[in-house]
Amino acid sequence: MDWGAIIQNSFRGFIGEPFIYFSLAAMGLNMHYGYTGLLNFGQAVFMAAGAYGLSMAVVTLGLNFWWGLLLGIVVFPLLLALIMGVPTLRLRADYLAIVTIAASEMFRIIARSPSLDRWTGSSDGLTAFANTFYDFNPFDKQKRYFFGLFIGNQMWVVLIGWIVLSIVVLIVWMTMRSPWGRVLRAIREDEDAARSLGKNAYWFKMQSLMIGGMFGALGGMFRAIGTQSAQPQNFITDVTFFAWVALILGGAAKVGGPIAGAAILYGILNFTDVFLRQLVENGYVPESVMDGTQVGQVRFMLIGLGLILLAIYRPQGIFGTKEEMALDDR
């Protein structure tokens, strides 16, 4: 067993690429659920919007990287929010839940369909669209940085990721202390009350869906840039729940909650991942019980189990108290 690798990987989970992707996605969910009470179970589609917005702009449409950013961060998520929000935001909360999860499935089917291969690259997705991003990389590709955790290109992704994440945190922190945030919280508590006081609840919910969706798109876009590929299986329905676990772990309706949650989540996931792989590779676990691919499935089981246990025992998150916003309020 290589304990050094296990420790290094766990630490990498705390601050590395997946932490950034899912912090951003969970910041979006926090906007949706934590502050507005919207049940978005399709954050993965917003992430996909970011990834595919960029990659389709560059690969399929032949536009430059900057147009890709616009498409991925603004245009695609806004359209998506409209499509999912217009029919459901006037209705009870579970309708949005159903439609968002249905949208995830639609994305999966469409993105993998060979008949649209020309546009989406079907199951293999699109690759090599972020060269412009790496052209600006000031780090040496061959060297390792940050206690040897990241090689040059990774360091560049992670550094920009941290910066974007800080900006997003600042935006959430500012807006949630403003009257705008107050209206969102009021809608979360009781939409009819907000409407009776002259607040256009529908429109505020739509804004929340859009802005949280854009945060999610940023997360998805980083995921695509980090691997230089946008593939359907990186944005399947279940991916949404990684962000949900991060959100509930850290505590909903806390500005830093999603970040703490994502760090802890990826610390744990990376630990179990590497730990199990080492067990398998070193023959502590026989092939008949578990092989290399199945290790990847274990992480989804952990996510499911995490959701169950958190929702039942720690709905307010691991740092929260009972009085604050918690999952089981409504």
């Binding site: 919280r185 009021a186 979360r188 508590e189 009781d190 009819d192 009350a193 907000a194 409407r195 009776s196 006081l197 002259g198 607040k199 256009n200 609840a201 309706a253 604050e324 916003m325 309020d329």
Partner: peptide, 20 residues
């Protein structure tokens, strides 16, 4: 909400205080 903005505001029989 527009009715409220026109100047007619209501309260509810079952109170809707925003608890949190």
């Amino acid at each position: 909400y527009k009715v409220a903005n026109l100047g007619m505001v209501r309260t509810f029989q079952l109170t809707k205080s925003l608890s949190k």
